[in-house]
């Protein structure tokens, strides 16, 4: 086809461009804005760790964690979604809306920590996948302990430790006495 064929074909066809605000419909599985399903988020901070542009910032506090996300900084690489151990993150299947000022679309979420089964104070959340990644084999006792808040966990460890120490000391004394 020569150039004349090309332009006459273009002339006969509908234009390929759009009149704003019409937009090209993105493919299915498009990587759009990141969303956090806070119910599943365990505030592990992996997303913050892998995000190259600092779009996601996770800041932990005593009783909750602030998860913030600014699509204006996001590169839509999807690393955070892929690596999120809670599968809390997902990406919209549509293009981000146009916005005028930086930070217009920023999201801030609060992840409240669940109550510790022993003392009722906030305890760091966890989930199975994170445990599997971080620890090879998990005893039932460990699984129990991971639910506790840090103070209770320390206390539980202390109890075990003192018990153990006590036992050992007993034996030693016995040995001395013998």
């Amino acid at each position: 086809m020569n150039i004349l064929g090309l332009i006459s074909r273009n002339f006969r066809r509908d234009p390929a461009t759009y009149r704003y605000p019409e937009r090209h419909v993105p493919a299915t599985r498009f990587r759009g804005i990141v969303r956090n399903d806070t119910a599943k988020c365990i505030a592990c901070g992996i997303c913050d760790h892998v995000c190259v542009s600092g779009a996601i910032v996770v800041v932990g506090h005593d009783d909750h964690c602030d998860w913030s996300y600014d699509p204006g900084r996001c590169t839509f690489c999807g690393r955070c979604v892929d690596l999120c151990p809670g599968e809390a993150l997902s990406q919209d299947g549509d293009r981000a809306p146009t916005y005028a000022r930086s930070g217009d679309l920023a999201q801030g979420e609060q992840i409240t920590y669940p109550a510790c089964p022993e003392c009722g104070l906030p305890a760091r959340p966890y989930n199975e996948r994170l445990l599997m990644i971080a620890h090879d084999d998990i005893s039932p006792e460990f699984r129990e302990r991971i639910k506790l808040c840090e103070r209770c966990r320390r206390r539980r460890s202390q109890t075990v430790l003192t018990k153990g120490l006590g036992g050992a000391a007993d034996t030693e004394r016995n040995a001395d006495g013998a």
Partner: peptide, 9 residues
């Protein structure tokens, strides 16, 4: 020109 190039113009 736009129409010959397949654009709206």
């Amino acid at each position: 020109t736009a129409r010959l190039q397949g654009r709206i113009g």
